[in-house]
């Protein structure tokens, strides 16, 4: 189907972009890779008068690492760039795994990690690990900059915490703590190239005895937003993550989830997969702690 008519704007700086958002508030959509947006425009699901492409804004580019501040993923960093970035591969391998699990080669070469997050799909591949790793999103408007913790970013399917005048500038991921481990698990049962029926991100931090000091578990595609498995997290604190403990935590995560049945999976299957994938994620994360 052909695209509806709209005016395309291509600001060359963040300042200019913020000005446009102010000017056309409510009538404008921001486009990064466009792999979700253009499809929705063609389907007439969205009818903005203006589309603002942000490809020409230098401040939004790049992936960088600072030993104090952690990882910065610019809004225009492509999924394939994040997947193959040496620093990401070395220090945040699960972010690479999640980026690589997103869609197809062609889409990874167009789409961005930030776009995947802003789209706020409950099944997004990149959300669970970023939630598990306690990332935050930097939002900019002409009024200034603010940092939104990722736990507060998702409001519902397709809805995020950005104001109409704001542009998401970058994702910040803290430096991994010592003796921490992370995992991303995904089940797309029908094909190796598939949207997740269920996905799970987990981060655990243990002491020298292997006792769990901190746990963050995020469940995807089993609720309106990527969900924290809080009862599983609480259960893990103070325990050594044995196979048995991981299994019990998985079962608790299963009750934390609120899956529905749809064309991709039944709710019963989804709940069971939350249990299995949480267990697997915790065991892999434990292994990653090196203890």
């Amino acid at each position: 189907m052909s695209l509806p008519k709209f005016t395309y704007l291509a600001p060359a700086s963040l300042e200019e972009a913020c000005g446009l958002l102010d000017q056309y508030q409510g009538k404008i959509r921001t486009k990064a890779g466009g792999t979700d947006l253009m499809v929705r425009l063609a389907q007439r699901a969205l009818k903005p008068e203006y589309v603002m492409g942000i490809r020409n804004i230098p401040e939004l580019e790049g992936i960088s690492f600072d030993p104090d501040k952690g990882l910065r993923i610019g809004a225009m960093a492509l999924l394939s760039e994040v997947a193959d970035n040496p620093v990401v591969l070395e220090r945040y391998p699960m972010l690479s795994r999640a980026a690589k699990a997103t869609a197809t080669v062609q889409i990874r070469n167009m789409g961005t990690v930030m776009g995947n997050i802003c789209n706020a799909s409950p099944s997004a591949d990149n959300s669970p690990t970023l939630v598990a790793m306690n990332a935050s999103i930097v939002a900019v408007s002409s009024a200034g900059e603010r940092q939104i913790p990722i736990d507060e970013f998702f409001l519902g399917p397709g809805r995020n915490a950005l104001e109409a005048t704001e542009i998401a500038k970058e994702i910040l991921v803290p430096v991994p703590l010592s003796r921490s481990g992370v995992s991303y698990q995904k089940i797309s049962p029908r094909s190796k190239v598939d949207i997740a029926a269920v996905n799970v991100g987990a981060m655990v931090v243990v002491d020298e005895q292997g006792t769990c000091q901190q746990a963050r578990i995020c469940l995807g595609a089993v609720g309106p937003i990527p969900l924290r498995a809080t009862s599983a997290e609480e259960f893990l604190l103070g325990k050594v993550i044995t196979d048995e403990v991981a299994e019990k935590a998985g079962a608790l995560a299963g009750s934390d989830a609120s899956p529905i049945s749809d064309v991709r999976a039944s709710k019963e299957y989804r709940r069971l997969m939350v249990i299995i994938l949480t267990k697997r994620a915790l065991l892999e994360a434990r292994h990653g702690t090196g203890i």
């Binding site: 197809t104 029908r190 094909s191 190796k192 190239v193 598939d194 949207i195 064309v263 991709r264």
Partner: peptide, 28 residues
């Protein structure tokens, strides 16, 4: 055998795109 099917509700076909009507990909 494995992945393709029309999910229907009454007479309505819900699997209306290749996102949900799942043809095996090259990797499969």
């Amino acid at each position: 055998a494995l992945s393709e099917q029309f999910i229907m509700k009454g007479g309505k076909t819900l699997t209306s795109t290749f996102l949900d009507y799942k043809i095996p990909c090259a990797e499969d």
